[in-house]
Design a binder for these strands. Structure first.
Lengths: 273, 273
DNA sequence: CCAATAGTGTCTGTGAGACAGTATAAG
DNA sequence: CTTATACTGTCTCACAGACACTATTGG
């Protein structure tokens, strides 16, 4: 059939000629947690932490998963959907958000074909109310890189902890990405262990050429704290003078000082755009 | 309703409780073209080029668009869908492919809500048959960066050419991406001008820390050719010695030599993994 | 005083930027 | 011989890595 105008064509268009599917967004809400040390002199240890929700429904009942939600195709974009989920979980609207990757293995959801676009969200924990939803919890991330091809992620929320081993397997040379393969695990639902690893790698990469790290920092921070966050994300120690040179033009010194730490007080800095 | 097992739950699951939508993939098939110069001594000039298809149906009838296709949710992943499109357009299966970004503005397709995941594909043109599909054509890309916030893309296939102006507008500070806004244009369908610009930026970024550029090179190439490809992608001149230092450990010299160019012959190199 | 972190000075080696110089083919 | 590119040598400057040193607090 031949139409004269685009308008006429659209009026007769049948949207059911192609099979349809459901989409979701998954949110990697990442922040930094501090753990007080036994020794009163020592600075509190920093960790990367991530928000997980406990599933009380099938599928993957009683396992943990990334917060997420189904897209309403009629009324919202994926980013708006992600913001809606974030608002629900944190009660905040103004959170740094960036699209990570679209995961779409055919059997990633046992219910039906679901394609999921994941987003990284970075937040300073101090901005959050204590009272977040009941069935979500912050898990510290401990990353152990066994070798080039194998990574262990340990997640710990203070009450329970579990580890997942993820193998990186090179796909045929036509694709860029490693094929991440999670070993069978009884704690993380769907393909979310792979989403988490992808997000950590993105962060590790982007911290070097962007200022995203400041989305996880409070307004005033010491350079020691900032350096620890870098070290946690990059998963390696940095030398003080080198670090200070790198971030020198990204921060500005304030009049404020942090004392009461059992050692020389440190100046508080602020992010400079 | 409460189920005892996941199996039981799945048997009773209704996939229609959430609205569904259609997905497509769009392929940015990028390669390098060479243009002979008038002066017999001069080396042929390199350009980035991209494959576009002419639409002979509504919507956007008679305009150009990226090759793409609807996802079959029952039988294929997005990447497989992208490969299917590539196979159809190029008759090749072994092409470098990487997911770029998922575009999902609500009104990006006037027919209905369509979410599109775009893929970058890189290929050496010499691998292609001359006889590609009838209604597709290679367009050279000329990029003119007016200032930080405005880019002009000119596309030229030898017969027709057109320009699109794209403004980069910063979104609210919660998101990473620039909000690209294409000025009204009568030649490129959908949001494809924005997809193209995103792909070029990805390429420009990744060329510095990966070896993807070799996917666009023939097996044997001169360092002059390789340098020109870098220059075209990075959109700036490079100094010979600096360039040779950078790529020194990525290539290996062969016995072969390229002659007949009206000047000193150059050694042919090969990609070294 | 001790222990721990804060913060700075400076040496060294690597590597990019820059420029100049030599080499060699076709016409 | 001219022209254009191929290819190399080397100087300089910026900067990361490394280490040592001083400063300052609570106990």
């Amino acid at each position: 059939m031949e139409y004269k105008t685009e308008e006429e064509f659209l009026k007769n268009y049948d949207p059911n000629q192609f099979d349809r599917l459901s989409m979701t967004t998954d949110i990697l809400l990442i922040s930094v947690s501090s753990k007080k040390q036994d020794n009163y002199r020592k600075t509190s240890k920093k960790m990367m932490s991530i928000l997980l929700a406990k599933r009380d429904d099938y599928p993957y009942r009683n396992m943990w998963c990334l917060p997420g939600g189904f897209l309403n195709p009629k009324s919202e974009t994926l980013e708006e959907c992600a913001k809606r989920v974030l608002k629900k979980e944190t009660n905040l609207s103004n959170i740094y958000l960036e699209q990570l990757y679209t995961f779409d293995d055919i059997n990633r959801d046992p219910r039906m074909r679901v394609v999921s676009t994941s987003y990284i969200a970075l937040v300073d924990k101090n901005r959050l109310d204590q009272k977040i939803s009941e069935n979500v919890s912050w898990f510290d991330i401990i990353l152990y890189v066994e070798d080039e091809n194998s990574v262990h992620i340990t997640l710990d929320n203070g009450k329970i902890n579990f580890s997942i081993e993820i193998k990186k397997r090179l796909k045929e040379k036509t694709t860029d990405r490693y094929q991440f393969v999670a070993e069978k695990n009884d704690h993380l639902a769907f393909d979310h262990s792979i989403v988490i690893l992808s997000g950590i790698e993105r962060l590790k990469n982007k911290i070097n050429y962007t200022d995203i790290v400041f989305n996880m920092m409070p307004e005033y921070f010491t350079l020691g704290d900032l350096q620890q966050v870098y070290e946690v994300i990059l998963n390696k120690k940095l030398l003080d003078p080198a670090f200070r040179r790198i971030i020198a033009n990204k921060v500005e010194k304030t009049e404020k000082v942090q004392t009461g730490e059992g050692h020389r007080p440190s100046a508080l800095f602020r992010y400079k755009k």
